[in-house]
């Protein structure tokens, strides 16, 4: 079995043996109730210092997207690839790789869901996995 390692600790949580869907780890300001991803130690909106870790909603809508044909330095995955911003019910728009859809099938506003998938293979660490979004397989619940 391939060993998988998260691209970075503290970004997402995968419950064991599929008990629940994976979620992004964010933070929520105690003072103004804004939520952020990735987590912050101070609220950039109100400067509050008390933020609590939260599980962000695994579903949202595609706010915008692009198909990248010229990859920047540091990227080791396949090209072309799709990147988008997914708006979560908490208000945060998460910039993430978009998978499971052909470029011609992309539409702003389409429902999306979080998946954890391969970013690239690292010869020493194994398969490096990251948060990604794909078109939601069932409708987003209001």
């Amino acid at each position: 079995m391939t060993r998988t390692v998260p691209i970075r600790d503290g970004l997402f949580h995968v419950p064991p043996s599929g008990a629940a869907p994976p979620h992004l780890i964010g933070s929520r300001c105690d003072d103004c109730a804004r939520s952020f991803f990735p987590s912050k130690n101070q609220c950039p909106r109100c400067s509050g210092r008390a933020l609590a870790e939260i599980a962000l909603s695994p579903r949202g809508t595609l706010h915008t997207y692009t198909v990248i044909h010229q990859a920047p330095p540091g990227y080791a995955g396949p090209v072309p690839y799709v990147v988008g911003r997914v708006e979560l019910p908490e208000g945060e728009r998460v910039l993430a790789p978009i998978v499971g859809v052909a470029p011609s099938g992309l539409r702003t506003g389409m429902p999306m869901e979080l998946v954890i998938g391969k970013a690239f293979d690292d010869p020493e660490k194994g398969e490096v996995v990251t948060y990604q979004f794909r078109p939601a397989r069932e409708p987003v619940r209001p």
């Binding site: 691209i7 970075r8 970004l11 990735p38 915008t64 997207y65 692009t66 990248i68 010229q70 990859a71 920047p72 330095p73 540091g74 990227y75 080791a76 995955g77 690839y81 990147v83 988008g84 911003r85 910039l95 993430a96 790789p97 970013a119 690239f120 490096v128 990251t130």
Partner: peptide, 17 residues
């Protein structure tokens, strides 16, 4: 994190806009 994900290039930011 944007570096290995390939999400941080300037053309990408403006393409999203």
């Amino acid at each position: 994190i944007e570096r290995p994900l390939g999400t941080g290039a300037m053309p990408t930011k403006y393409a999203l806009i």
